[in-house]
């Protein structure tokens, strides 16, 4: 008996001895992999920062206000780098995407969260989530092969020949190319629709039922409940959803590259080939011959990274704020 006790003790001791460093090693191992995730972010920041140094020193802040982008020396035009065409293109196409997508997507979110019959809710929500997962190059193929010809024939041409004669930014003589900021913006709006709709639905379902019941008890109609009690409560979250959508539109590369036309000039009309920051980098970086060209492109990428980072962080902050408690202001 005593013998058995002794062996059991030693066995337990042996186990303890063998595993006593285990937790420390485990902690250190997982910690080092976790730190590796942080290293990945630092790699991006460091690489884009150090590689854009040349452009930053040469151009300074004027880089973002200069309108000439001319990487190749020609007898007519000297070499110059200015981010204005990319900035204008990115802002205009994203604005178009947001104006088109945000109201519709919020409508979908409201429908899915508040009005949808329970039978349809799960499949429709799942469909919305699926669409957010489809690779952007597929939207690009459809845009180039199907939508661009249709759009040029039936929308762009008629508009430029009628309204375009009066409103300068809807006209232009390059309409037939079928590439431009408007068509890129439309495709972007289709792409960011699921993102905004899914998050809107998520934040709306977080609104506590008491909020709805109070207004129902006062005799409100279904819409009044949604508009006066649910949406104001979730306002911060919905704004966050729209900002995440904007972030996706700003940084979206493939669909923009395929549909915007890749002409690095500030376009005069919405139907004219233009460029966006992401598509400029995607189409020129690999072919950049000079160091300063590469550096200027990396600087654009760095600026894009900084802007999307800020947008994403403030959006997440808003959604997190919304999850923490009531922020809505009840209106009469």
């Amino acid at each position: 008996m005593a013998q058995a006790q002794a062996t059991r003790e030693t066995f337990r001791e042996r186990i303890a001895k063998r595993t006593q460093h285990g937790d420390g090693i485990f902690w250190g191992l997982t910690l080092s992999f976790a730190l590796l995730v942080i290293v990945l972010v630092f790699a991006i920041v460091w690489v884009t920062w150090s590689d854009s140094q040349l452009a930053r020193e040469r151009f300074g802040w004027a880089f973002f206000t200069s309108g000439e982008w001319n990487p190749v020396e020609t007898p007519v035009n000297p070499v110059s780098f200015g981010a204005m065409p990319a900035i204008v293109g990115t802002l205009v196409s994203s604005a178009i995407a947001l104006i088109l997508a945000a109201p519709v997507a919020i409508g979908i979110g409201i429908f899915l969260a508040e009005l949808c019959p329970p039978v349809l809710r799960t499949p429709l929500s799942f469909m919305v989530e699926l669409l957010a997962a489809i690779p952007s190059v597929i939207y690009g193929v459809w845009g180039v092969m199907v939508f661009a010809p249709f759009f040029t024939q039936n929308v762009a041409m008629p508009i430029s020949q009628t309204i375009g004669q009066v409103v300068p930014w809807l006209g232009g003589d390059r309409v037939s190319s079928g590439r431009g900021l408007l068509i890129a913006g439309i495709i972007l709006s289709i792409m960011i629709l699921p993102t905004i709709a899914a998050i809107t639905r998520d934040v709306l379902t977080l609104v506590p039922n008491s909020q709805r019941e109070v207004l129902l008890a006062l005799g409100a109609t279904k819409w009044e409940v949604i508009w006066l009690a649910v949406v104001p409560y979730a306002r911060a979250g919905i704004i966050g959803a729209v900002m995440l959508g904007l972030g996706r539109a700003l940084g979206e590369t493939m669909a923009a590259t395929m549909l915007v036309g890749n002409r690095p000039q500030v376009p005069e009309t919405l139907f004219e080939p233009a460029t966006t920051a992401a598509s400029l980098v995607a189409s020129e970086l690999v072919n950049a011959q000079t160091l300063i060209h590469e550096s200027a492109l990396v600087l654009i990428a760095l600026a894009l990274f900084a802007i999307t980072l800020l947008l994403n962080l403030s959006a997440r902050l808003l959604i997190w704020y919304m999850n923490r408690g009531p922020v809505g202001r009840t209106r009469a």
């Binding site: 690489v47 972030g247 980098v281 990274f305 962080l313 997440r316």
Partner: peptide, 16 residues
Amino acid sequence: ACDVLSGAPSIIVGVT
């Protein structure tokens, strides 16, 4: 860092 990485446009990763 995960939020930053998942929110970053994929082109940035390509550049890096």
